[in-house]
């Protein structure tokens, strides 16, 4: 049979240039491996130190740190892609349904209260952030549900409202807890410098993998959502269940990322847009490509945070915004021109 223009991998329309996601994934893997090697090598000179300390630095600080960066990047980008698809809005980001607000509030609360007990080997701040983020998402979902249905615009507004409420409480806490300011501000700006990176990886790694898997299972449903909720329903999507699953996936990925890395902005907004520009809008391609590209970019940004102005560490959130914003504008303008 003559499949002119089929399969879509070979589509080369003047207005559409799409790469196969396989090639993009392979390229991302290669680039990440290179970044990882550089990240483990880069930093203070270890030639004069004892083998034990060198092993400690390489094996327990730098290696888990670059893995953590990859995890956070993949999680935020997956969540961004899920929420952008669900809300049919390329400007949605992982923080739209209040996860970051809830996580920040809970994290700061744990700092202010001086919580010290670890949870499953996880630092109290990280555990609090994870739980707080999920709680906020749950509250938002519950608030938006009317007669068994969760209209997406309502969900979006409830997310904004809960986020605003959380940040109001946060402000009050900040004033009340001036002694812990530096710790709080550092957490809020986001950082991947942790001495317990391995235990963070052990707990949040599986959570993120599960969330990504769940999102992947519902990737086709997410495509249907892009035509509108009612159209998706007409095509046979169990809309409310799909919505619930996708929200769980996005919320878990976001909460996990925030728990281990604080609030790192812009990644979840920019990376899915980049992925769509590369491979087209099909979420079966967008989700894996976003995850891979996010892993690469956050790893790179963290390398920059560590090495741009030694011995100072720059906040990684500042790096991602610094690099992400101009790039985003460039993509926007290019798109507007075509």
């Amino acid at each position: 049979m003559d499949w002119n223009g089929w399969p879509k991998r070979f589509i080369r329309n003047a207005s559409m240039r799409r790469l196969g996601s396989g090639r993009v994934l392979a390229a991302a893997a290669g680039i990440w491996a290179a970044v990882a090697v550089v990240s483990v090598m880069a930093g203070a000179d270890l030639s004069g130190v004892s083998p034990e300390i060198r092993k400690e630095v390489l094996w327990n600080l730098r290696l888990p740190r670059v893995l953590l960066a990859a995890l956070v990047g993949a999680a935020l980008s997956t969540a961004g892609a899920v929420f952008q698809g669900l809300f049919r809005n390329p400007l949605a980001d992982p923080f739209v349904i209040g996860v970051s607000g809830g996580a920040a509030l809970a994290a700061v609360l744990s700092i202010v209260l001086g919580a010290s007990a670890t949870v499953l080997g996880l630092a109290p701040v990280a555990a609090a952030a994870f739980v707080g983020g999920l709680l906020a998402a749950g509250v938002v979902y519950r608030l938006a549900r009317v007669r068994g249905r969760v209209p997406l615009p309502t969900l979006l507004l409830a997310g904004f409202a809960v986020g605003a409420l959380a940040s109001a409480f946060l402000s009050v806490l900040l004033v009340a807890a001036s002694r812990s300011w530096s710790e709080i501000v550092l957490w809020l700006m986001g950082s991947l410098a942790h001495t317990d990176a391995w235990s963070r990886l052990r707990i949040m790694g599986p959570a993120v993998v599960l969330a990504m898997g769940l999102a992947a299972i519902y990737a086709r449903d997410l495509n249907m959502f892009l035509l509108g909720e009612e159209s998706a329903r007409h095509l046979g999507v169990e809309v409310e269940r799909a919505k619930r699953m996708l929200l769980v996936a996005g919320a878990v990925a976001t909460a996990a990322a925030v728990a281990v890395g604080g609030i790192i902005g812009f990644v979840g907004l920019v990376v899915p847009n980049l992925a769509r520009a590369l491979v087209g809008p099909d979420h079966r391609d967008v989700l894996p490509v976003s995850a891979a590209a996010g892993a690469v970019l956050v790893s790179l940004a963290d390398l920059g945070a560590r090495c741009a102005a030694p011995p100072l560490e720059l906040p990684i959130g500042a790096i991602t915004a610094l690099a992400g914003a101009p790039f985003f504008l460039w993509v926007l303008r290019r798109k507007a021109r075509s």
Binding site: M16, G85, R88, P90, S231, R233, H234, G236, R276, P281
Partner: peptide, 27 residues
């Protein structure tokens, strides 16, 4: 259930606003 209904019954809406650039064939 939604899927078996959709195998029996197809709907053409008045219009659909699509924000993402799916190709006509993909739609």
């Amino acid at each position: 259930d939604a899927k078996s209904a959709a195998r029996r019954l197809a709907v053409v809406p008045q219009d659909a606003v699509v924000e993402f650039d799916f190709l006509a064939l993909e739609i």
